[in-house]
C-alpha cells in the first residue's frame, strides 16, 4: 500500500458500518445476547419471586392465597416466563463453565456449544411448560 492509500485507510472519514441489521450474527453471538437478555429479565423477575416467597411464608392463609393465585393463567404465564429465562441462563452459564475448563473452545466447538445450548434449553422450557399446566 502506498502512502496515500495508507492515510486514506486510517482516515477518520472512513465509512463505519454499524448498522446492526446489516450484520450477520453467528449462532454463538445470538446465544450470548440471549444469555445477557435473560440475565436482565431475571434481574427484574427477582421482584416477583421475592413477592411470591414473602406471601408463601407469611402464614397458612396467605400461602393458600398464593397457591390459588398461581392457578391463574397470567400467573402461570409469568412463572413460565421467569423459569424459561432461568433455565436458558442456567444452560448457557453451564456452557460457559465448561468452556472455562477448556471444553469446546474451538470455533467448531463454539458453534456446536451454541446449538446444544439452544436445543437443551428449548426442551427444558417445553417440559417446564407441560409441568406448570
Amino acid at each position: 500500500m502506498g502512502q496515500k492509500e495508507c492515510e486514506e485507510a486510517v482516515s477518520d472519514n472512513r465509512p463505519v458500518n454499524l448498522d446492526l441489521s446489516q450484520f450477520s450474527f453467528p449462532l454463538p453471538a445470538i446465544t450470548s445476547v440471549i444469555h445477557r437478555a435473560t440475565g436482565l429479565i431475571l434481574f427484574v423477575g427477582v421482584a416477583f419471586v421475592l413477592w411470591a416467597f414473602q406471601e408463601s411464608l407469611s402464614g397458612e392463609e396467605s400461602f393458600n392465597a398464593m397457591k390459588s393465585v398461581m392457578q391463574g393463567f397470567l400467573a402461570k404465564l409469568i412463572l413460565w416466563g421467569i423459569l424459561s429465562a432461568l433455565l436458558y441462563h442456567l444452560v448457557a452459564g453451564t456452557k460457559h463453565l465448561l468452556m472455562d475448563m477448556g471444553i469446546g473452545e474451538t470455533l467448531e466447538g463454539g458453534k456446536l456449544g451454541a446449538k446444544i445450548t439452544l436445543v437443551v434449553s428449548i426442551v427444558l422450557i417445553l417440559i417446564t411448560g407441560v409441568w406448570i399446566w
Binding site: 445477557r36 440475565g39 436482565l40 431475571l42 434481574f43 427477582v46
Partner: peptide
Amino acid sequence: HAWVGMWTI
C-alpha cells in the same frame, strides 16, 4: 452475580 452482570451490560 447480578451486579457483575448488570455492570458488564
